[in-house]
Design a protein around this nucleic acid. Sequence first.
DNA 1: CGAACGGGCCAC
DNA 2: AAACGTGGCCCGTTCG
Length: 392
Amino acid sequence: MRRWSGHCCRCLPTWNARASRSTATSSRGYRQASRRASRVSKNLGSPRQLGELLFDQLKLPGGKRTKNGQWETRAGLLDDLAANEELPEDARKLINTMLEWRQLSKLKSTYTDALPLHVNAQSARIHTSYALAATTTGRLASTDPNLQNIPVRTKEGREIRTAFIAEKGAQLISADYSQIELRVLAHMADIPQLKKAFADGLDIHAMTASETRRRAKAINFGIIYGISAFGLANQLGISRQEAGEYIATYFKRFPGIRDYMETTKKFAHDHGYVETVFGRRVHYPEINTKNPSMRGFLERAAINAPIQGSAADIIRRAMVRMPSALESAGLAHTTMLLQVHDELIFEAREAEIATALPLVQKVMEQAPEPIVKFSVPIHVDAKAASNWEAAH
DNA sequence: CGAACGGGCCAC
DNA sequence: AAACGTGGCCCGTTCG
């Protein structure tokens, strides 16, 4: 039984039809037009055909194959290709056009076209379903539609967020845990330098910075995910050796993290499970497999699970307490709408916003108590605005 | 025709 | 051998 049967989440704000109306050409139309205009007859929307054009016909350098023998055409790879000044201008231009087309067609097909089809006729809102026991770590999963992956990274993507609006006379509140997984790590692994940094309100990403903020962030996340020099090198486009030096520097700066990861790994091998900070178990019965790649994969998952799982426990505790907390505070017109892993979204009548903001912040920040007293501060940022993009 | 799968990519 | 964790959805392709 994967799905929590019966109910969807509470209502989502109304979909803003104005913002969601698309004026773009249909993808089919675009492809037909580009096929006519091209000397080679290809559907470049198909990764296979794009790969064949770039690497079989045009013989561009740097081609890699996927495990099934297809040419890889990931954005990261195409980025590198287009950056190569040795390549013919028209090839680079084609690649950049394809990257742009990929980005826009992704947004159109997955969000702009699809989301309006989910608007409920009665409520005039989009309702998602949350699966409560679908992930190994204890996170929720959102489906039909997934409202936990609404774009935010790019300017064009954020346009989609602006379409999630509050009722007239109300606003949306977005309240999100600040760097919750790094704080969980600092607490669970008991890293003095990391705990002090959070206690002092320092910017961890800036602190990690051996070079740029982008690299610092990648390392911080990499640590949580069970990093390897290879993976970090891949992501940052640096040499394996350089990546290895970053990791070594990180481990030196925060002594105890490497030990913690090794201890967690050993615990997983000895017991076949790991635990969140609240004692909830995440089982890895196959972790002692002799298959090296599977073993490595399970080890990284087992290192990540207590961190990701503890953060999932914390926000669940906040969610369980939230309705009664709102009611006790007399906030009858403030409603919890959505959960996005480290963020809760509410709709609140304007008259209630000033009270709701500090209340939801408090419930979220105190969620570990009284079971666990965190040795680092848990911090929540909360903000109200008329649409999701502005509130975030 | 639908199911299953791979590739790709959106989020945290 | 793979190489950074957790998910879900879309498209193209293949298969029955």
